[in-house]
Each structure stands twice: as structure tokens, then as C-alpha cells.
Amino acid sequence: MEIGFGNFFSLNQAQTLHFLVQKVKSDSRAGSWMGWMGKPQERGPADTAVHRAAPPKGAAPRAAPRTGKNPMQSLAQLRYVDISRAFKQAPWRVQIQVIATLASVAIVIVALGGLYLIEASRAATAGRDVQSLQVDKAELELSINRQLALIASAKSVARLEMRARELGYAPAQIGQIDFVVVKGYYGPQLHLPAAVAPAPEPELPDYNETLGTWLVGTLADMFGPGGE
């Protein structure tokens, strides 16, 4: 039976147990395994299993120590926490953690950058639309002024009077007018009634949403209290 450790390597059960036993023993002799990652002065001359496993330069490879005990018995003596610690502190495990952490940071940065770009492009598009609308508005105002002036010219007294005469009308004389009493009517209201103010239109909010406010708002919509 083999125990898989990802794509890095694999050990059979016996090799694994042997490796662990050696780790625990050397740990009890030379201090913490963590020492190899610590400061140099805290480490002993041969403070890691890796170092000890490597024979001195020129020396013959040392045979694996044998205790004469059944490996299964040794394993039984090991505490669970020691095994767990050994796995956690394995070098390949640390590498994976570092790589995963960096990858996560990179993904977050890319995601934030992407969101920023999306928002920035939306803001720029909206800005361009606003510029275009402002130009349209100015042109429309000019056009309205022009139309009002044309209408006013068409309604001028001289023009209306000339047109009325062309159509056969003549100014009324006082003798041609019959005055009657109309109940509740008090004569022509030459003075315009006070202009009725139009209902105020809802004021559009300024387009000042930042990425942060957008995120907060979106999250609030997603996870905030629902219903009315």
C-alpha cells in the first residue's frame, strides 16, 4: 500500500514509519524541527534530520539505525501530535503553503484590478455620455429659443392685424358690442394667474460611487435583511 502526497513524491508504509520514527528520535535529541527554519544561531551543527541523514563529505553512507524493535511497536509508542507535527512541518508542505498564499494574493489583486477596470470604464463611458448630453442640451436650448422667437414674430401685432384685415375682419366699434351680465364672470382676466409650479423632479444622485461603496452596497444587497 502506498500513501499519496500529491505530485511530489510517495512512500510505502514501511518507509514512512521509519522516517517518522527517525524524526521523533532526532527531535528528542536535538530540539525542535522547526530549528531549520529558524535563526542560524539557534540551530545546532546537525540539527535536522536531513542534515543528519546526509553523511559527512568523504565518509561512507551510514546504515539506517536499527532499534531491533518491531516498527509497528515503535509507531504505537508515538504520540499522535508528533506525527501530526511532522506532516505539518514537512518542507514540501511549507512550499505549497507559500505558493498557495502567493497565488491567493495574486488572484485577489487581479480580481480587484479587474473590478477597478470595469468600474473605471463604466465611469468613463458615463462621463462621455454626460458630455454628449450636455452638447445635446445646449443645442436644444438654442433651438427652443429660436422657435420661440419665430413664434413670437409670427404672433406680432402688426402681422396679426394685417392677416385679420386680409381675411376681411375690421376693428370692432363700441356700438357693435353687446354687453351682457354673466353670473360669476367678472370680465376678462387680463392678468395671468400665478404660474403653477411644476412638481419637483426627483434629484438624481451625483455619480460618485467608488469601488468600496459599490462593494459594500452589493454585499449589503446580497446579505442584508430582505423583505419590506
Binding site: E141, N145, A149, A152, L192
Partner: peptide, 19 residues
């Protein structure tokens, strides 16, 4: 700003703006 318009008392334009 556009200059205010001038009307007579019946609301007929006496002065307005043009382009």
C-alpha cells in the same frame, strides 16, 4: 445664462432670445 424674457401683461413676448 440666457437673459430673462419680457412679456406684456397678457403673456405676449416683447423681448426674447434668439441664436
Amino acid at each position: 445664462p440666457p437673459r430673462g424674457r419680457i412679456y406684456d401683461r397678457s403673456g405676449e413676448l416683447l423681448a426674447t432670445n434668439d441664436v
